[in-house]
């Protein structure tokens, strides 16, 4: 047992799952926004880091970690709602490149605004849990209470989101509003509010992803950039429509990158994502986890 747990393969599996869980979380955000408003949120990572900065910067001023976490998520909710109301709502019914361009602009704006407001300090956000790795028969297992916390938080949020969409009236309304907005409106669902709520939800989860990657790490505006790109690949491979596909895709991308990083080269990990995407899109352009739908003319 000790040999298996501490073997190189298992080390990579643990590492891959840790990064994969965060990728899956961000991919889930992309799918929520895509399903509700048909917008690919290019600023997802930047919005998450902005919210993370608002909350987590207070850690350096002796504020409780958990309070900062809650503050970050709350900021994420507000930023998401405002973004939908101010930037996205005027663009409904416009060509699909318009929201893409606006969100790319928002990405550029936030990535400049964050270092402008909070001058880079290179301070490490302290972890609330021990970062000392477990030992097994004198060998190191690449798991620590801190790593378990990261994985548990990411998977826990995914579970909550799944329960929300499957088993609550609100979740049902949100799914209905995304699937058939006109019919839902006729049946008395306040669709516009739910679209805003979808953005708030994904932005709040994005903030949590920012907190997870920034804990035990320096607080930097670009912390989620690579994760956003991987998350997009995961979501696209799974088909932007499928939350489950996004989560599975995220975990797989995390594992794949970890193996390439360890056995080949850290620099080639981003390229591997592109190649995976190219191949999967060449085989099944609509994504692996979606049914083929015909587009109405």
């Amino acid at each position: 047992m000790s040999t298996l747990l501490t073997s190189r393969i298992m080390t990579d599996v643990f590492g891959g799952i840790t990064s994969g869980a965060v990728i899956a979380l961000v991919a889930l955000c992309l799918v929520i926004v895509w399903k509700s408003t048909n917008v690919l949120n290019f600023a997802q990572g930047a919005m998450g880091m902005f919210a993370t900065f608002v909350g987590m910067n207070l850690v350096f001023h002796d504020t409780n970690y958990w309070l900062c976490l809650v503050l970050s998520v709350a900021t994420g909710l507000v930023v998401g709602g405002l973004t939908e109301r101010v930037l996205i709502r005027p663009l409904y019914g416009k060509p699909e490149i318009n929201p893409i361009v606006v969100m790319v602009g928002f990405l550029g704006l936030l990535e400049a605004l964050v270092p402008a407001i909070w001058a880079s300090s290179f301070n490490t956000v302290p972890s609330p849990f021990s970062q000392v790795y477990f030992q097994s028969h004198g060998n190191t297992v690449l798991l620590s209470p801190f790593v378990l916390y990261q994985i548990a938080l990411a998977l826990g949020v995914m579970l909550v989101v799944a329960l929300l969409f499957q088993y609550t009236t609100l979740g049902l309304k949100m799914r209905a509003a995304a699937l058939a907005p006109e019919v839902s409106r006729l049946l008395g669902v306040r669709v516009n509010r739910l679209l805003t709520l979808g953005w708030m939800l994904s932005s709040g989860i994005g903030a949590l992803a920012g907190v997870i990657v920034s804990t035990g790490h320096t607080l930097d505006a670009t912390n989620l950039d690579g994760i956003f790109v991987s998350a997009f690949i995961a979501a696209a491979v799974g088909g932007l429509e499928s939350p489950l596909g996004a989560v599975i895709g995220g975990l797989l991308i995390g594992l794949a990158q970890q193996f390439i990083l360890n056995y080949w080269s850290a620099n080639l990990a981003p390229l591997a994502g592109v190649i995976v995407l190219l191949i999967s899109l060449a085989i099944k352009p609509q994504g692996i986890f979606t049914r083929t739908v015909t587009r109405r003319v």
Binding site: W34, V39, L40, I100, A236
Partner: peptide
């Protein structure tokens, strides 16, 4: 649209 944009971003 968005798939292509994301692909080229990657």
């Amino acid at each position: 649209g968005p798939y292509l944009a994301g692909m080229t971003l990657a």
